[in-house]
């Protein structure tokens, strides 16, 4: 939202002035930003740099390395990249992000938004209330609810039993699928709301004009609607990707990253290494890698969807 506002302010035609006066003016104009920049530097950049430094040490929760952490250079990273657990965790993370955020939440959220747009008012309010409930629940509550749903004696298996089907222990047999579905359930409401708002902004006369010109439904959607809400898509994708990349509670409560390491995404792996196996430096290195991956996703979205181009 901040981006859109920002654009509009600039779009209202700033007076072009020239030369040094303009430079002075722009410096003066950025003065009110200083407190925000200072706060970001202290509370955001500082911790990031500190964690970057921490990932270059052998800092540990206990033992000699807790009292005197040594600088070990890139050792944590070479250990990490030569560890098969890290690579499987990276793949799991990508599966989780692509499956639950990019495909699940995003596509389902868009589909729900489109359907609700066409739906009658009572249907719309009932459906959106139901969907939003998952978003309203605190993450820990949602995680317990989903654990109860997927666990061996849980709701899902009981329901399958009514249909004469035999369930399985989903959290053991298909842990990554279970947590992916759980995250779809929990996060779809957010995409739905973003897209509902964006669709409402599309002027109906443009779609009507296209309709008169003989464009089919899918054509209207892909050539008119999608390009017009591109910025909302970009913002939404970015937010849900980064949010999903950081999902910890949901997975930790449902599977603990297990069985073994078969649902240990990078945040879970980082937590285990740092706080369970006491290797804080190594865990910080994993967190840093996660940060870089989030940055890569962000750059891709900015480049591909070009939200700044009209």
């Amino acid at each position: 939202m901040a981006i859109l506002l920002d654009r509009r302010q600039h779009g209202r035609g700033p007076e072009r002035t020239s030369g040094p006066r303009r430079a002075v003016q722009s410096v003066l104009r950025s003065v009110p930003l200083l407190p925000a920049v200072a706060l970001l530097a202290v509370f955001l950049l500082g911790p990031i740099l500190y964690s970057l430094y921490g990932s270059l040490t052998d800092r540990s929760l206990t033992g000699p390395a807790a009292a005197n952490p040594q600088f070990v250079g890139l050792e944590n990273y070479t250990d990490l990249f030569s560890s098969p657990v890290f690579w499987s965790s990276l793949v799991l993370t990508l599966v989780f992000v692509v499956g639950s955020a990019l495909i699940g939440q995003n596509v389902l959220g868009m589909a729900l938004a489109l359907l609700l747009q066409a739906a009658s008012r009572p249907v719309r309010s009932v459906v959106s209330t139901i969907v939003v409930v998952a978003w309203v629940l605190p993450e820990i509550v949602a995680a317990f609810a989903l654990y109860a749903f997927f666990s061996g004696t849980g709701t899902l298996n009981i329901a399958l039993g009514w249909l004469g089907l035999e369930g399985t222990s989903w959290l053991i047999v298909l842990p990554i699928l279970a947590v992916t579905l759980a995250n779809v359930w929990r996060g779809t409401a957010f995409s739905m709301m973003v897209y509902s708002a964006a669709l409402a902004e599309v002027p109906p006369e443009i779609t009507e004009a296209a309709e008169i010109d003989g464009a089919s439904g899918p054509q209207r959607f892909f050539r008119i609607t999608l390009p017009m809400i591109r910025r909302a898509i970009s913002t939404n994708l970015m937010l849900i990707t980064l949010q999903t990349l950081g999902v910890f509670t949901l997975i930790w409560v449902m599977t603990g990253g297990g069985p073994g390491t078969s649902s240990a995404t990078l945040p879970v792996l980082a937590y285990q290494q740092a706080f369970k196996f006491a290797q804080v430096g190594y865990g910080t290195a994993i967190a840093t890698v996660t940060l870089v991956i989030g940055g890569l996703f962000a750059i891709i979205y900015i480049r591909v969807l070009k939200p700044e181009v009209d």
Partner: peptide
């Protein structure tokens, strides 16, 4: 970019670090 950095950082705080 700023929003990005904020979001990444918020996401990572979920790691409980």
């Amino acid at each position: 970019v700023l929003v990005t950095v904020v979001a990444v950082a918020l996401g990572l705080t979920a790691c409980g670090s």
